[in-house]
């Protein structure tokens, strides 16, 4: 077991290195010169050279990559002497636009993204699993059709469209909700809740739709298994049969899916945060794209990759504990 985890960790480090290398290569070769961008409109060739040497942009590719990589673990120093700027580990460089540390920028916006992600995840698990179960147990009835049609719409509706639709209906037309504002929970709990309600709903809808489809298929699959017949033949109550024997086999695969989807939320939340003006990591990414702020885009990409890779390992380990066929070797 320990060896398996160790091997997975090594593989994960390899994947992360590859991703960082690819990302670095993309910006190194494909993107316009950052020095020109930093320098601004009134710029002399001398100034550009100066910026280049300060940021280490005049070095060959591998050295730049190495500096970037080692900066993440040990921090790095830009420039020399009195003009030197230090960047503590984990250093992802400085924004071309605001000169802030990318690490600080991301950390500062994490709470908003985490709030959004956790609320949405709770909603979509509830709706997805509930809907899927209802649909499977009432298979072929009006309930089933209603849930599945909603789910089909849910996976077909782009979430920015849903966001605009909700905002237009609930805020502009019906005035049930105020315009979303960036307040913290301690400042004004009600306004905080009202501001996050739509983003949670929008982000959760698509996932809930997908999950209800998957849960329905899994439950119907499980209900057809022979051990369900055994459970009934034992004379167990129908609810016990469903709860104990059908639920666990049907929902265990959902754990894997959920781990990966939750870790991948940085991508999913990007649009939701942008549309609702939530100042999270997703909006930071979208803003940085608009301004071509490479260090920030790169930092977020690496963070997103790291989250997915770590989640992958966690999910595998969790799954081992949930499925006895994997946990216990057969005799």
């Amino acid at each position: 077991m320990a060896i398996t985890i160790l091997r997975r960790l090594l593989a994960a480090v390899g994947v992360l290195l590859l991703i960082s290398l690819f990302t670095f290569m993309i910006f190194f070769w494909l993107s316009p010169d950052p020095a020109v961008q930093i320098c601004g409109k009134t710029c002399t060739p001398e100034r550009i050279d100066q910026i280049r040497s300060q940021l280490g942009l005049d070095l060959p590719f591998w050295q730049q990559y190495w500096q970037f990589l080692s900066g993440i673990f040990t921090g790095r120093t830009y420039g020399e002497g009195a003009a030197a700027i230090t960047c503590a580990a984990p250093c992802l460089g400085f924004s071309f636009q605001t000169n802030e540390s990318v690490t600080d920028m991301i950390v500062a916006r994490m709470p908003v993204s985490v709030t959004l992600a956790v609320g949405a995840a709770a909603l979509w698990l509830l709706a997805g699993i509930g809907g899927g179960l209802l649909s499977a147990v009432k298979q072929g009835t009006g309930w089933d059709r209603a849930v599945m049609t909603t789910a089909l719409a849910g996976i077909s509706l782009p979430n920015y469209f849903v966001a605009l639709l909700l905002q237009y209906l609930l805020v502009v037309q019906l005035r049930w909700l105020p315009f979303p504002q960036s307040v913290t929970f301690t400042e004004d709990p009600l306004l905080w809740f009202q501001s996050y309600l739509m983003p949670w709903l929008v982000l959760a809808f698509g996932y809930a739709a997908m999950y209800s489809r998957i849960v329905r298929t899994n439950v119907i699959d499980t209900l057809g298994q022979n051990f369900m017949r055994t459970a009934k033949a034992k004379g167990l109550d129908a609810p016990v049969v469903l709860r104990r024997h059908a639920l666990r086999p049907s929902l265990t695969p959902v754990v894997t899916l959920f781990g990966m989807d939750f870790a991948g939320l940085l991508g999913g939340a990007l649009i939701t945060e942008t549309v609702f003006g939530l100042n999270g990591v997703g909006k930071l990414t979208a803003d940085s794209i608009a301004k071509n702020d490479q260090p920030v885009i790169m930092g977020v990409t690496l963070l997103a990759a790291a989250l997915v890779v770590v989640a992958n390992i966690l999910v595998d380990v969790t799954y081992t504990y949930l499925d006895p066929r994997v946990r216990v070797k057969s005799a």
């Binding site: 051990f227 017949r229 104990r244 666990r248 086999p249 066929r325």
Partner: peptide, 13 residues
């Protein structure tokens, strides 16, 4: 039943 493997729930002892 006929098939003893699939007739037992794999998730429980």
């Amino acid at each position: 039943f006929q098939d003893p493997l699939s007739s037992l729930n794999p998730y429980y002892t």
